[in-house]
Amino acid sequence: MAYSEKVIEHYENPKNVGTLDQNDPSVGTGLVGAPACGDVMRLQIKVSDSGVIEDARFKTFGCGSAIASSSLATEWIKGKTVDEAAGIKNSQIAEELSLPPVKIHCSVLAEDAIKSAIEDYRKKRATRGNA
């Protein structure tokens, strides 16, 4: 199976690889997938007081398409509000990267990772608000 140019570009020069401080209250962390399934994504967002995603980082265990999907996801959500980022659909990621049917699950995982990071961030904020 041949990879699209965009997958190769993201795979070879991944954007935003790294780790944010999980304990920072402005950071939300999403960890999705399973080692037994061959892909695990961790996506983190750092959100400003005004609700804008200032920074995003990822680390991914998976195939080239999984790595490219996470790299693209971090690129897209940076600068967006949390609400805007929550609206990103896996189909948009799949289309942008021209993923073949057998790799669609990689884009689903990226969407899940964004949602899971946002959820974590919101939970943290809610707890902080109540304190």
């Binding site: 061959g38 265990f61 998976g62 790595i67």
Partner: peptide, 11 residues
């Protein structure tokens, strides 16, 4: 360990 096979083959 901790590296996925297809990802490595692509590299």
């Amino acid at each position: 360990a901790f590296v996925e096979g297809e990802g490595l083959m692509m590299a």
